[in-house]
Amino acid sequence: MPIKIPDDLPASRTLEAEGVVVMRETDAVRQDIRPLRIGLLNLMPNKISTETQFARLIGASPLQVELTLVRITDHTPRHTAAEHMLAFYQPWEDVKSERFDGFIITGAPVERMPFEAVSYWDEMRRILDWTQTHVHRGLTICWAAQAALHHFHGMPKHDLDAKAFGIFRHRSLLPSSPYLRGFSDDFTIPVSRWTEVRSADVPTGSGLRTLAESDQTGLCLLEDPGHHMLHMLNHVEYDTTSLADEYHRDAAIDPAMPLPVDYFPDDDPTRRPENRWRSHAHLLFSNWINDVYQTTPFDMARVGLDRDKG
């Protein structure tokens, strides 16, 4: 089955060119199928690029998925046209009465700020609490994962001496997890952050399960069964050139900016990098969506109420 997205969303052209089956809204209404409702709270500056990255991974599922784009209610993005936001995004305050089978919250370029100093922190906390009553399964990425771990478990984030930046090897620690089904014992994932959360800060009795970590960059993937969430602390969704774009942007400001680790061939930033994480990105999202599909109630009114406690 295809992914259902707004007819004129720019991501649709990219996805169709890549062979992802996209269902137009006008066609979806003809089918008597209950699609999975997935919400995406997009906190990243480049909205269109991020929409495409996540729609690509969600759209690879054999299930029909309806993607709803959500934004912080009173925050005005500086890097995306107002017309795009008005056409394709709904403020969280307008969707908070609705229910979602899955809800994804992206990273944000605010990780070096204290949580409480982020202008939309109060709404972010309300959204996280709302996921406990109106969402069946949640998935948080990078800063959003740190925010959720802080909100639900009181875990701090720590500043790094230097940016963790590049492609790093990770280990699968719990192969029996449904989220790691089919994963290699060792796999690579893009990392781009100035802060970290640490294993030593995981509260005793929290129920948090570490699924993947790196010797170099620490925690990567945690399952939070008590809150029905999966926390990915790195950027498994990144495109092939995402780190290159970040590097060239930052190097234009600071020529001493270190190269991303193990990314450019022969550490030559003029050469196109190879994508060595795409398969595991698709696998992780496929496993997550499969878990959502297998456990969510058919009746949307029961979403958030009938979740299992495992």
Rank of each mutant, 00 (worst) to 15 (best):
F54L: 15
T73D: 04
A82H: 13
T80D: 07
I38S: 09
T50G: 06
M85A: 11
R71C: 04
A60G: 15
S61G: 03
G39E: 00
L40Y: 01
G39S: 09
R71M: 05
E51G: 03
R78T: 15
K47N: 03
R71K: 14
P62V: 01
S49R: 15
M85F: 12
K47C: 05
R34H: 09
Q53A: 09
T76G: 04
A82K: 14
A28R: 01
R30T: 13
A60P: 02
V29N: 01
L57T: 01
V70T: 11
P45E: 11
M85G: 08
V65G: 00
Q31C: 06
L67M: 14
L57W: 01
L67C: 04
I33K: 10
L86W: 09
R30M: 08
P62A: 05
E51N: 15
H79K: 15
R37W: 00
A55V: 05
L41R: 10
L41G: 02
H79W: 14
T80Q: 08
L36W: 00
L67I: 07
R56K: 14
M44K: 13
P45T: 13
E83F: 03
I38F: 10
L69Y: 10
L63H: 13
R56I: 07
H79A: 15
F54H: 15
E83I: 04
G59C: 07
R71N: 05
L63R: 14
E51F: 13
I33L: 10
P35G: 09
N42G: 12
A87E: 07
T80F: 04
R71Q: 12
L41H: 07
R71D: 03
I33D: 08
S49Q: 15
T73S: 11
T73I: 03
R34A: 12
P62F: 04
D74F: 07
R56P: 04
S61A: 15
I58C: 12
I48L: 03
